[in-house]
Simulated assay, not measured.
Amino acid sequence: MAAEGTAVAGGGAVGDRLAKDSLRQFQCPDAAPNRRRGSSLSRDAERRAYQCCREYLGGAWRQARPEDLRVDPVSGGLSNLLFRCSLPDHLPSVGKEPREVLLRLYGAILQGVDSLVLESVMFAILAERSLGPQLYGVFPEGRLEQYIPSRPLKTCELREPVLSAEIATKMARFHGMEMPFTKEPHWLFGTMERKLLDSTPSPVVFCHNDVQEGNILLLSEPENTDRLMLVDFEYSSYNYRGFDIGNHFCEWVYDYTHEEWPFYKAQPADYPTRGQQLHFIRHYLAEGKKGDTVSQEEQRKLEEDLLVEANRYALASHFFWGLWSILQASMSTIEFGYLEYAQSRFQFYFQQKGQLSGFHPSS
C-alpha cells in the first residue's frame, strides 16, 4: 500500500500544530489533493516552494526568479504530495547543485518530530549506500529529494520473472543492512494478533515494510546493472522478515492506478502462485547466502519454511493496512476509497487465514 509519512508507521503522534499550519500554507485551499490527477499548488505555495529550493539548494537556485521556477505535480502516494521542481534551461549551474529536485510535502497524518528525525537519518544513510535518492533538504512540512528519471512499476509487472527476481535481490540486500535504530520489532505489536508472531518464527531484519509497485522505480538511466530502486522509506524499521515478503506478495493483488471510485482494483486471483513465490524466495535466499553452500535437502527446507513464514505474515499485512486505511478515512483529504480498501484487506485476511493449515489464531 502506498502510504508515506504517517504516524502509524513511525510510531510518532499525529503531527503538531506547527507542522499542520505549515502544510496548510503549501496546499491549494480550493482543491483537495488527488493522487490520480496530481496535486495543484496555489501561487503562494509556488513561492514557498521557490523559497525552500533557494534556501536549501543554493547555487543557481538563488539566482532564479520565482516565476522562473517550474513546479509540476507528480502522481504520488496516498498520504504525501509530490512536486518536481526544475531550474529554467537558460540559467547556468553555479556548482554541483541539482537542476531538478522532488519536493515532498507530508499529508494530513503527520509524524512526530522524533519520527521525522529518524526518517531523515535513515534517508541519508540509504542515499550514502546508493540504495535510495539523495537528500537535499529537510523542513517541518516536508523535504527535498533527488529527482530520478524513472517510472514506478505497474502492478502487473510484479509477476514478470526477471523483475520479480530483482525485487527479491533488492529486498535481501535491504534486509542485510545494519542500521543505527532499535533492533526490537515493535512495529506490529500494537496491531497484530500476538499469537501469529509467537507461532511463526521469523528473523528480525531491517525491513522496507512497503515494497509495492509504486515504491519500486524502473530507472530510465541505470548507472549499473540494477534497473530498480526502492523508494519511500517512511515505514522502514527493524521488523520480521516474513512481513516484508508476505506484504509484497499481497501487493500483487492491488492496483492503485484505477481511475474510478474507489480508485483501486483488487484481483485476489493475482496473489502469487506457489511457483511464483518459490521463484521470488529462491532469488532472495541466493542473495542472502552468497558464498555459502547448502545441500539440496537443506535448500528445500529453507524454501518451504520461508513459504510458510511469508504467507502467515501476509495476514499481518492485511490486518495492518486495514487498520491504517480506517485511520486514513477519518483524516485524509485525498480522494480514495479508504473504507472500501479496509474492507477488502480484512476480507482477504479471513480468506487467507482459512486457507493456511496449522495456524489457528485467536479470533
Results as ranks from 00 to 15, higher is better:
A2E: 05
T6G: 03
A9I: 06
G11D: 10
A13L: 12
Q25W: 03
Q25S: 10
P33D: 00
N34A: 03
E46Q: 15
C53W: 00
R54P: 09
W61G: 11
R62K: 15
Q63S: 13
R65N: 08
R65Y: 06
D68G: 09
D68H: 12
D72R: 12
L78M: 08
R84Q: 11
P88M: 10
D89R: 13
L91H: 14
S93C: 11
R99W: 02
V101M: 04
R104V: 09
L105Y: 00
L105G: 00
D114L: 13
E119V: 12
L126W: 13
L126V: 14
E128R: 15
L131C: 14
F139G: 03
E141Q: 02
E141T: 00
G142I: 06
P152A: 09
A168K: 06
F174R: 06
E178I: 07
E178N: 07
E184Y: 07
P185C: 01
H186F: 09
T191P: 00
K195Y: 10
V205P: 03
N209D: 12
L218H: 15
L219N: 12
E221Q: 09
S236P: 08
S237I: 15
S237T: 15
N239V: 07
F243R: 07
D244E: 06
I245F: 04
N247P: 02
P268M: 05
P268L: 05
P268H: 04
G291R: 04
E298G: 04
E298T: 06
Y313C: 01
Y313K: 02
W324E: 02
I326R: 12
I326M: 14
L339D: 03
S344N: 14
Q352E: 11
Q352G: 08
Q352R: 13
Q355F: 05
Q355R: 14
F359R: 11
